[in-house]
């Protein structure tokens, strides 16, 4: 298994001065990759660049070796990239089941089989199937959001700060699920504020500062690195 999704030497921003400078991010199948760094380091921007939500002035984005730089976000989703935004990542006015069905919108079938598989991973989906997604707790919402993105059977799953605003217990539980997802062979790439906990489960970590790569290594190595610890993990 090699690199599935990769952005090489990406430079770009939202029209103003570039936020990303020569930034390279890669994600491998079956692995968890995390992007960490201080506020304003361009973590979410790097992820959005991979999804095609901003224009790059330099660099290229590849999915399984193919250049997808010219595709729109919707086309990239169709090509097998799943994305879970940080906020507003579920249809609050629809039931949990309908949320999943919307995730399966691009599929030829109705996705009933996938739902069965996902229920193994996220039992809450079955328990709350007919409830309004907006009425769920924060952790349950995140599970619905991740499951929705998985309905399209993506090869890469992008998670933008999946644990923002949830309690530590819920965070641990979510990370457990994410590990399970990666075990199915999906490349998981996530941006995380909770850097220490994220690096603990990460196969690979990218530390961004000012839109540039500062450190890149395995999660364990980064955790062991004194400089990284001092500067980014609070000692």
């Amino acid at each position: 298994m090699g690199v599935l999704l990769a952005g090489y030497e990406m430079t770009g921003g939202y029209g103003g001065p570039p936020i990303l400078q020569d930034c390279t991010i890669t994600a491998e199948a079956g692995q968890i990759t995390v992007i960490v760094g201080p506020n304003g380091a361009g973590k979410s921007t790097a992820m959005k660049a991979l999804l095609g939500m901003l224009e790059l002035s330099a660099g290229r984005v590849e999915l399984a070796g193919r250049d997808i730089g010219l595709l729109s976000p919707q086309e990239r989703v169709a090509q097998g990239i799943g994305f879970v935004p940080q906020t507003q990542n579920i249809f609050t006015g629809m039931t949990v089941l309908e949320n999943l069905q919307m995730g399966a919108f691009l599929r030829a079938d109705d996705g009933a089989e996938i739902i069965e598989q996902l229920v193994q991973l996220f039992p809450v989906l079955a328990e709350k199937a007919d409830q309004q997604a907006g009425a769920l707790s924060g952790g349950q919402r995140q599970q619905v959001a991740v499951a929705r993105a998985l309905m399209n059977e993506p090869s890469v799953l992008l998670l933008d700060e999946p644990t923002a605003g949830v309690s530590p217990v819920v965070m641990d539980e979510l990370f457990d699920r994410i590990i399970e997802v990666a075990k199915t062979g999906i490349a998981v790439l996530m941006v995380e504020q909770n850097a220490r906990q994220a690096l603990e489960i990460a196969d690979r970590g990218f530390v961004l500062v000012g839109g540039e790569n500062r450190f890149t290594d395995t999660g364990q190595a980064l955790l062991a690195d004194a400089t990284v610890r001092r500067s980014f993990l609070g000692g």
């Binding site: 935004p85 249809f91 006015g93 629809m94 069905q101 919307m102 919108f105």
Partner: peptide, 18 residues
């Protein structure tokens, strides 16, 4: 359903391929 989804959350609906 896709219309309700679009009305509920346009960006997410687009990400679903609607």
């Amino acid at each position: 359903k896709s219309m309700r989804a679009f009305s509920d959350n346009e960006d997410l609906a687009l990400l679903c391929g609607i």
